[in-house]
Design a protein around this nucleic acid. Structure first.
Lengths: 221, 221
DNA sequence: AGACAATTGAACCGACGGGTTAAAAAGGTA
DNA sequence: TACCTTTTTAACCCGTCGGTTCAATTGTCT
């Protein structure tokens, strides 16, 4: 049978077409939401036709879910690049916070898809149980930091890994997700490079500080 | 003319009908977004008809904007109830954080409308310049706390009021806005009463801690 | 070549839903 | 009563858009 090797030399190979569709669909869904997106608008951005979208993905909702899954794994893969080996707990946590903050900024479409999922009460995301492992992985990293931080007597002993992850996510996510309304209400000074550097520094300081047993003993920059 | 007194005894007075429409529209728009909401669904929830909605509000987008404005002023009015007079800066800030955290929890529809506005890049909110005064008021409160905190030597001297407001908003907002996806990914333990109390305590601790000149001198609970 | 499967295009369908028409009913004024 | 303005109802209009039909085309296998 060997479909994977031989038949992958069609006039135009379907994997490329599918991923072309996914790419355009991601940006359309991120921009306009599920009900706000028109399939024809997606088609217009691809090298193929509306017909092909239904041929490959069945219907709009399935396409949306494929986009969500695709985007999620890409972003999670990006997270795996962070290497905290050999760092002491405080430096490791600092670096994790900085990385997460930057990583969210680099992936605005992903943030928007998550916003949209929240509007839908995570209806579609719940179906994607493939994510659970990756999520547990993210928590695992924090658990490791917490454990060695407590062992070294540096961290408070009531730090909960999931709550810590929540804190990091909250600041990183809000920064991207609520930029538009925050700017509309209070100006966009916090969103130029200097402002972002300030917010990132504050994020590191506040989270580190709330986790440390004796904050005064550590340079919070 | 005196329309306000005499003609307000129609069979059914229009102000009541309008606010009935606004009430239902708010919950529909909050639940389904702008494009996701069907005017007929709004009508079905009111005591009046679809025709009336167009009669009073013109079109869908205008209704949406009316809802946004209505909801915004209601929520902002609720904030005015907070009284920080007579508190020292640390207690005032602590109380402001706790209040904001709780206040967001109490107004999920408002949060959802803001999420939706962010999806639309705040397009409609920008048009509502009536909010600017109320926003400046919110910052004013924080400015006052910062000023006296610095004067008393309790706060760092580089605390920026808008950045502080950003921190408070980020945690309070994320807590409500991202509940669905966070739960889907990491379980809902943080969203029962005990979990919420923990997050609130952490929020107070981390923000206070990052603002204080000498965190170790203050009981962070 | 001929049979068969995978892929594509163009035209079409039908319901959904925002917005309108037309006209009646209700209230106010004199 | 006659006449005007405001409010309400029911039926309708029509563009949009998710999804389909059907046949043509392209490629593979033998």
């Amino acid at each position: 049978m060997e479909k994977e090797t031989k038949s992958r030399r069609w006039k135009q190979n379907p994997e490329a077409v599918k991923s072309d569709i996914l790419r355009v669909a991601r940006s359309e869904f991120a921009r306009n939401g599920l009900s706000g997106t028109r399939i024809e608008d997606i088609a217009a951005g691809t090298k193929t036709s509306k017909r092909m979208i239904f041929y490959y993905f069945g219907d709009k909702e399935s396409l949306y879910e494929a986009v969500l899954e695709d985007c999620y794994s890409e972003v999670r893969a990006g997270e795996a690049e962070l290497d905290l080996e050999g760092l002491d707990p405080v430096q490791a946590l600092r670096r994790l916070i900085e990385f997460t903050f930057d990583h969210h900024r680099r992936n605005p479409d992903f943030i928007r898809l998550v916003m949209i999922e929240n509007i839908h009460e995570a209806r579609h995301m719940e179906r994607m149980q493939r994510l659970q492992e990756q999520n547990l992985g993210a928590i695992g990293v924090i658990e490791g930091i917490c454990k060695s931080g407590r062992a070294a007597g540096l961290f408070r002993d009531d730090v909960a890994p999931v709550a810590l992850h929540w804190q990091i996510s909250a600041l990183s996510f809000f920064n991207v997700a609520n930029r538009a309304t925050f700017s509309a209400n209070f100006g966009d000074a916090l969103f130029d490079e200097a402002g972002q550097a300030l917010l990132r520094r504050n994020a590191v300081r506040s989270i580190l500080c709330s986790v440390l047993a004796r904050p005064e003993t550590v340079d919070l920059r």
